[in-house]
Simulated assay, not measured.
Amino acid sequence: MNWKGVFPAVTTKFNEKDELDFELFDKNLQFQLEAGVHGIILGGTLGESSVLSLEEKGALVKFTVEKVAGKVPVILNIAEGATKDAIELARLAEEWGAEGLMMLPPMRYKTDHRETVEYFKAVANSTTLPIMIYNNPVDYKIEVTLAMFSELVVCENIQAVKESTRDLTNVTRMRNLFGDRYSILCGVDTIAMEQLVMGADGWVAGLVCAFPEETVAIYTLVKAGKLAEARSIYRWFIPLLELDIHPKLVQYIKLAEAQVGIGSEAVRPPRLTLIGEEREAILNIINTGIATRPTLPDYKSIVID
Rank of each mutant, 00 (worst) to 15 (best):
L283T: 08
L185K: 02
Y134R: 02
T127S: 10
G39E: 00
D112A: 13
Y219C: 04
T295L: 13
E156I: 01
H38D: 15
G97D: 08
N287F: 05
I75S: 00
E88C: 08
D21S: 04
R166E: 13
D298H: 12
E277T: 13
F25Y: 15
T220I: 05
A192P: 01
S49M: 13
Y140R: 09
E99W: 01
V74A: 00
Y140S: 10
T288G: 03
Y109K: 13
A224S: 13
V138K: 11
P106E: 12
G43T: 07
L227Y: 15
I158M: 12
D139N: 14
G5N: 03
M198K: 14
V250Q: 06
N136V: 12
V222P: 01
Q251E: 15
N15H: 12
D305A: 14
A258L: 09
Q259K: 15
E16N: 15
A147T: 14
I87E: 03
P130Y: 02
N125H: 13
W203Q: 01
E48F: 07
R231C: 11
E95P: 03
K84Y: 12
V260Y: 06
R175W: 01
A160F: 06
I253G: 01
R268W: 09
T220A: 05
E151F: 08
N15L: 10
R271W: 12
R166V: 14
S232H: 11
A79V: 07
L177T: 11
S53Y: 05
D139V: 09
F25I: 04
A69H: 00
Y252L: 03
I304F: 10
S150D: 14
A9F: 09
P297E: 07
M103Q: 09
T111M: 13
A90Q: 03
N15P: 04
T215F: 05
L60C: 07
K4W: 00
G276N: 05
G289I: 02
W203L: 04
T292G: 06
T127F: 04
T169L: 14
I184D: 02
L185H: 03
A90C: 10
K110D: 13
S264P: 10
A256Y: 10
T169C: 13
V161A: 05
D139L: 13
E16Y: 10
G100D: 00
P106N: 09
G47T: 08
L46D: 06
A79D: 06
F120N: 07
D18Q: 14
N284W: 01
V37M: 00
N170P: 03
I286E: 05
T83S: 11
E99Q: 15
E56A: 06
K162D: 06
V51C: 12
F25V: 02
E66L: 09
N287V: 07
M102S: 11
Q195T: 09
L104Y: 15
Y299M: 03
E23W: 04
S53Q: 07
